[in-house]
Design a protein around this nucleic acid. Structure first.
Lengths: 236, 236
DNA sequence: ATGTGATTTGTACTATCGTACAAAAGATCA
DNA sequence: TGATCTTTTGTACGATAGTACAAATCACAT
């Protein structure tokens, strides 16, 4: 409707397919999958609803393509950073480098996809929360390898911590990472404006620092030696 | 149970209202708000779709009532546990008790609502991820007080850590907490069966231990060079 | 310029959504 | 019992969902 029969020189539409992907990514990441209609996406991309069907066949197909578009580059970037991190000699520094190799690609773009890192990570967070079927399949078969590699690398830096504990803590890391991208405003609010939750650099530094410390916590087995128990007693 | 006396005040029938609430809570928590239809809820509760409208007027009203049902008891429980935790003398033990006061009510039932703790927390996680409007309003005005009280309590145990850092780390804690309830299977999978992600006791212990360590991490200020003060720029 | 294949548009179809509302069924008490 | 209030049922309505598809339009090699 807003279409203007201007000359072809002015605003040349580079690629409608890309516009649809970008719009869908943004809308899915902020509102969830089911809350966004194909018409919403088309409108945001300045396209026709039928165009979405043409390029991606179904709404699920569109989501699938978004994943396909990002998974490769992000995992590649993680592998590179992880490989580099493993070459750090000092164990303490290596741990931090390993954590950073996991965190940084999630916040920043890992390829030519403009600023896609944080947006795609947020998308994954939302799809994960919604229990989206399409997402779950891809995630499990695409990211588990990376996660295992990450866990192993952390374990190498912390041989005295049981692998189980490391799995838990890396799980917490991912949850914290997701949540930081989902509701950054909460950080700003709770800090009474002293911190900006949507500042990626701050988020990364804070997350890396906190996570390294969490990984370095004593193993759980010997940490609960029957001394502590008093406060948690009440139960229903 | 099968009392004979009739009093208009007490509700003791096979309450359909309760069944609808429980079914909605479960379905929303696992599939998100928009993916679940009123008819799905009615069917799961063994009720008629019209019954949902009768009791809760709208779908939003149903979600609202779920929140109303849980917020009070959970915050009350947290306040009690936090008050008890603050009486712990040893600073190290107190910090752990404070964290536990925040974590435990999220995993376990805080009232007579059967096993509602974890389910409701998961619901909150999902609504948060979906950016649900109804949820956001209630959350901000109901949980921010609790969060501030928690942050202050942590800060008292760690006076040398800037409040901003504590806000970030408590934010990470909530993210980790949410994610543990959203995809517990991931923990089981990544640990190759050695850990059970859906075991609340393990999750609590792991989360408390990791979080205490994260809170105790050195302050960030000296870890990050200058170049701070980016101020909140208007975002999209 | 023209033909050809790729893309975009407009529209229509069916299914399902949230919600409304009248009638049926229970419950309560004079 | 019959009157009255509460709850449940059944059904219907308008809106919107995902998708299909033919017509219109565009890009470009010839």
């Amino acid at each position: 409707m807003v279409r203007k029969p201007t000359s072809k020189e002015t605003a040349r539409k580079p690629n409608m397919r890309e516009a649809i992907l970008a719009a869908a990514e943004e809308l899915f990441a902020t509102n969830g999958f089911n809350a966004v209609s194909v018409r919403d996406i088309a409108q945001a991309a300045g396209a026709n609803p039928g165009s979405v069907t043409y390029h991606f066949k179904t709404k699920d197909g569109l989501l699938l393509e978004i994943y396909r578009r990002h998974c490769g580059p992000m995992n590649l970037r993680r592998s590179e950073l992880l490989a580099a991190a493993k070459r750090v000699r000092d164990l303490q520094d290596r741990l931090e480098a390993v954590v950073r190799a996991y965190v940084v690609p999630a916040f920043t773009s890992g390829s030519d996809l403009a600023g896609g890192g944080a947006r795609f990570t947020r998308l994954r967070a939302v799809m994960s929360a919604e229990g989206n079927e399409v997402a779950r399949k891809i995630i499990a078969q695409t990211f588990d390898d990376t996660s295992h590699a990450f866990i192993d690398a952390v374990h190498e830096s912390l041989p005295h911590v049981p692998r189980t504990d490391i799995v838990w803590r890396s799980h917490f890391l991912l949850g914290a990472l997701y949540y930081s991208l989902v509701t950054p405003d909460r950080v700003s609010r709770l800090s009474r404006g002293e911190a900006d939750g949507s500042d990626a650099a701050s988020a990364i530094e804070q997350l890396v620092q906190a996570t390294v410390a969490a990984f370095q916590a004593p193993a759980l087995d010997q940490a609960v030696p029957a001394k502590r128990r008093p406060v948690v007693s009440s139960k229903t």
